[in-house]
Each structure stands twice: as C-alpha cells, then as structure tokens.
C-alpha cells in the first residue's frame, strides 16, 4: 500500500501513457496509429524539453536543433553507410548529447532572455550550415532507398515498428523524467530554477548540473529525429530545424504544466488533439494558427502553471497522484 502511495505519481503517468499507446494496437488502424505517432512524438519531445525548461528554468527556444542534428547524423549513417536503424539512432542520440554538452559549457552561462536568444541562434546557424553541407545533401537533403525497409519487414511493417520503438522511447523519457524529478540531481535543478545564485551558495554545482540537464534533454530528441526521418523516408534542412516546432514543444510543456512529469503528456495530447480538430474543422481550418494563438495567450495570461499545476494548486488531495 505504501509503495503504491509512494509511486502513485509514476503509476498514474505510466497508466495514462499506456492507454495512449494501446489504442492503435487494439484497433489496428493505420490512421489511428499515425495520429498517435504524432502525439507520442510530441509527448517524448515535450517531456525531454521539460527537464531543461520545467525543472531547470532555462528556456531553450531552439531545442529542435537536437532533433534535427540527431536526425541528420542517423539518416546519413542509414542512407550513405548502410547502417541499421538501431546503430543510427544510437549515433543520433550521442551526437545530440555531445552537442548539448559542448553548447552547455558555452551558452548556459547566459541567463534568461539571452540564453533563449542564443538557442535560436544555434538552431539557425546549424540549419544554415547543413544547408551548405554537401555530404548531407545540402538544401535538397537525403532520401532513403526504399529497399532499406526490407530489412524491417517491408514498408508497412516498418511503420508499425517505428510506432513501437517510439512508444518505448516515450516510456524511457517519462521514467527518466520521473527519476530526475524525484532525485537529488533533480532537486538541484529545481533549486537552480528558483534562484541560481542562492542554489550555488547552498552548494549546488550549477554549471555542471545545468549542463547535464541540457544533455539529458537533448539525447532522446536526437534519437527521435532519426526515427522520425527513417519513417519519413527523406530529410531536408527546413523540416529538420523548424524553429516553430521548437516553440510548439514549449507550448505543450506550458499547457500541461512545466516542471511536472505528467504535464507534458497532457499538454502534448491536448495540443495535438486541438490542432487535429482545428485542421479538420470547416470553420477554423483557415485560421487554425490564430485560434491556437488565442488559446496560448489565454493559458499564458490566466493559467501559467498549466493544467497539472493548476490542479495541484486547487486540489491538494491530487498532489501525490499528479507529479
């Protein structure tokens, strides 16, 4: 009983995710799988970002750079070197992690708006660079030979495979996110978020701790980039380093509740469902972006803690269950 109470937050989180994942597997429909793929991808990206944004309080506007770079490195290994998806994903994760480590040493010194600006600059510089980088196909990018999918049971099978791999990665992100949230390392991050100078005086080695949070938040997006573009069959600079995608991740984290484990799941689910609804609605189809903008504004102005944060404030009984 006490174990259940202790891990209630994790159990609720995993439960919510399991329901999401199982839905396409039960129905077996491609369209359901595709919808859920988009949602899970958002959940995993938003939860990764949350480690930096929600726990540490650093606003990375260009977080998509890790998705893009990882995607490119992995895609290159698959298409030009004939490596397997697994090795390529590993390489994508590692390269994103290494980039985050190097960047962390440099730009995490910047605070507040300056850090946010620097991350935008990094993403744009990387996009422009890849655009000129011939081994990665320059502006036209790269495509996968269709025969590659044969190793994974054909194109149709490969789509299901991608789905299950994504589901597994999403579980890993959430468990990592939960472990960080409840660990000493995570407490150090929260202390930095609240007051970095005070945290340092209390002994938190902020430069180190921040860097590792950055690395942790970058690895899975790097792997997801490989998976996404493997499924996609081609990669180009614009979709790989789309700044707007970065900001969508932030919106999802905010919507659900930054700094909580469950928040990014609900936020990603809510955001993608809403987007799907707006895109197919005859009334809102043309102005879906504007409607989403109004909603974002309402959340920022009136519910800054997000859904989970708001519930935790209003209904203290739920605090243990919603983490």
């Amino acid at each position: 009983m006490s174990t259940v109470r202790k891990y209630l937050g994790l159990i609720v989180t995993i439960g919510v995710l399991l329901m999401l994942v199982a839905w396409p597997a039960i129905t077996g429909k491609d369209i359901t799988r595709e919808t859920t793929f988009t949602i899970l991808l958002s959940v995993a990206l938003a939860s990764s970002l949350n480690i930096l944004l929600g726990y540490t309080g650093y606003v990375s506007f260009g977080h998509v750079v890790f998705f893009g770079l990882g995607g490119y490195v992995g895609f290159y290994l698959m298409s030009a070197q004939g490596m397997s998806l697994w090795i390529s994903m590993l390489a994508g994760g590692v390269s994103a992690g290494v980039l985050a480590f190097l960047l962390g040493k440099a730009i995490l010194r910047l605070r507040g708006g300056y850090f946010a600006l620097a991350t935008i600059g990094i993403n744009e510089a990387m996009r422009a660079f890849i655009n000129n980088f011939e081994p990665f196909g320059g502006p036209t990018g790269m495509t996968l030979n269709f025969s590659v999918y044969r190793d994974y049971g054909g194109a149709g099978q490969a789509l299901w495979l991608s789905y299950y791999v994504l589901a597994a990665l999403t579980f890993i992100v959430l468990i990592v996110s939960y472990l960080v949230r409840t660990s000493k390392f995570g407490l150090g991050l929260l202390a930095i978020r609240e007051d970095e100078d005070a945290a340092e005086v209390m002994g938190v080695n902020a430069p180190n701790v921040k860097t590792w949070a950055y690395v942790l938040s970058a690895i899975i997006p790097g792997m997801l980039g490989v998976l996404f573009f493997f499924k996609n069959g081609s990669i180009e600079p614009a979709p790989a380093f789309r700044l707007h995608f970065s900001i969508e991740m932030i919106v999802m984290v905010m919507l659900g509740g930054q700094g909580t484990v469950l928040g990014p799941i609900l936020g990603a689910y809510g955001y993608q469902s809403l987007r799907g609804f707006l895109l197919t609605s005859p009334i809102f189809k043309d102005i879906q972006l504007a409607v989403a903008g109004v909603l974002l504004l309402v959340i920022v102005l009136f519910v800054p803690a997000g859904v989970v944060g708001w519930l935790r404030q209003r209904v203290p009984v739920l605090r243990r269950a919603l983490q």
Binding site: K184, L187, G188, A199, M202, G203, N205
Partner: peptide, 11 residues
C-alpha cells in the same frame, strides 16, 4: 525541500 537542498549539497 528548501532545507533538504542545504543538507544534500552542503558539507
């Protein structure tokens, strides 16, 4: 939690 930060990262 504030005090735990002190204990965790202190001497």
């Amino acid at each position: 939690e504030n005090v735990i930060v002190g204990a965790c990262f202190g001497r």
